[in-house]
């Protein structure tokens, strides 16, 4: 244990952690992780150009994930770091994957948008808007048939609300009474198009109700409200009453790292960023009598944890070129022939 950890342990031993404090700690981990991912990008250490941060949306990830249980499965959209972290992901392996390193969750082949860990029930992040949604119907079907008691949760953004696959999937989940929950993290923007520029029907949960699901919209400012609502919906889903939850929040930054948000005003951003679920929770904890100093120590330990993740990612090796042909097919199947090998074979003739 380092000094910070010893100090933290004393604090923890001295008093009982409140639920809110735990939710705060998880949200802070997401926030700090995302900030570090942003730095990784700025330093040119991330793999590729596609990075979508969930800063401002932490209450949705943490609130819903804290209502899930071990054995539950889930899929996420392209802005899913926070959800994965909230379900217990190892930040080192996440950061390494985002940096495209061999030590990452997917051996550097998936990256930010295709990160997954079957061991944690993460059936995959997805770079196609709505693409990961129907998989939870299949997972729900398997859970129902196997009577496992597990649920499967699809996380997606408001952009996916206008994708047909969502309605096909919700319809099947309702029709077959599946243990499934659909969670829309409504950060107000599908890339640069605001939700009210994408649809007239902005009461998103009403669409799910129309299909026979439980449907609720909740303000994401207060993580406790999100958690309580999600708990009710997951309890229902577990007994075969599928649900839909829309969590309203504000995407603090652009769609991806290169996006300077030309489609919205500075005033709007300033107002939007005031709706900060992390600071809101922090203020409430202080009102409960916890000192700033205690919270600073928590923040610092998280900062240290994420610094280590960055170090791990940067010091890891990229995958070898030969791994390119691995895992196209199952483990005992022949790998595809490399183009160069083929050319050499053809041109080797007399």
């Amino acid at each position: 244990m380092n000094m910070t950890e010893i100090k933290l342990k004393h604090i923890h031993d001295a008093r009982t952690n409140s639920r809110l404090e735990d939710l705060y700690r998880q949200m802070r981990r997401v926030r700090t992780f995302e900030e570090r991912v942003g730095e990784l990008f700025v330093r040119g250490q991330s793999a590729g150009s596609m990075l979508h941060l969930s800063i401002g949306e932490e209450s949705a990830a943490v609130g819903v994930c804290s209502a899930m249980k071990e054995g539950d499965s889930f899929t996420t959209h392209h802005r899913g770091h926070g959800i994965f972290l909230s379900r217990g992901a190892n930040p080192n392996l996440m950061m390494a994957e985002i940096a495209g390193k061999e030590t990452g969750y997917c051996k550097g082949k998936g990256g930010s948008m295709h990160i997954a860990d079957m061991g944690l029930g993460h059936l995959g992040a997805n770079a196609i808007v709505g693409g990961g949604i129907p998989a939870v119907v299949g997972a729900g079907l398997a859970a129902k048939r196997g009577k496992t008691g597990a649920i499967s949760v699809a996380f997606f953004g408001d952009g996916a609300m206008q994708q047909g696959i969502l309605y096909e999937s919700m319809n099947m989940a309702a029709l077959w009474d599946l243990p499934v929950l659909f969670v829309c993290i409504n950060n107000q923007y599908g890339m640069g198009t605001r939700i009210d520029q994408a649809t007239k029907a902005t009461n998103l949960h009403e669409r799910a109700i129309a299909l026979g699901l439980n449907g609720i919209s909740v303000d994401g400012l207060n993580v406790e409200t999100v958690q309580e609502t999600a708990q009710k919906l997951t309890d229902d889903a577990r007994v075969g009453k599928p649900g839909f939850l829309a969590v309203s929040c504000y995407r603090f930054f652009g769609h991806a790292r290169m996006d300077k948000s030309p489609y919205r005003s500075e005033e709007e951003e300033t107002e939007g960023r005031k709706r900060d679920p992390v600071l809101f929770a922090r203020d409430n904890i202080i009102k409960e009598g916890v000192s700033d100093e205690v919270l600073d120590i928590i923040d610092q330990s998280i900062s240290d944890e994420m610094d280590s993740a960055i170090d791990f990612a940067i010091s890891s090796s990229p995958p070898p070129l030969s791994s390119m042909f691995r895992d196209v097919y199952g483990p005992n199947e022949p790998e595809p022939e490399p183009v160069q090998t083929r050319i050499n074979r053809i041109l080797a003739r007399e």
């Binding site: 949604i133 998989a135 299949g138 859970a143 048939r145 099947m172």
Partner: peptide
């Protein structure tokens, strides 16, 4: 999509 999720869940 449902078949994919089911295949990933042991069916």
């Amino acid at each position: 999509g449902t078949a994919i999720g089911a295949a990933m869940s042991g069916l």
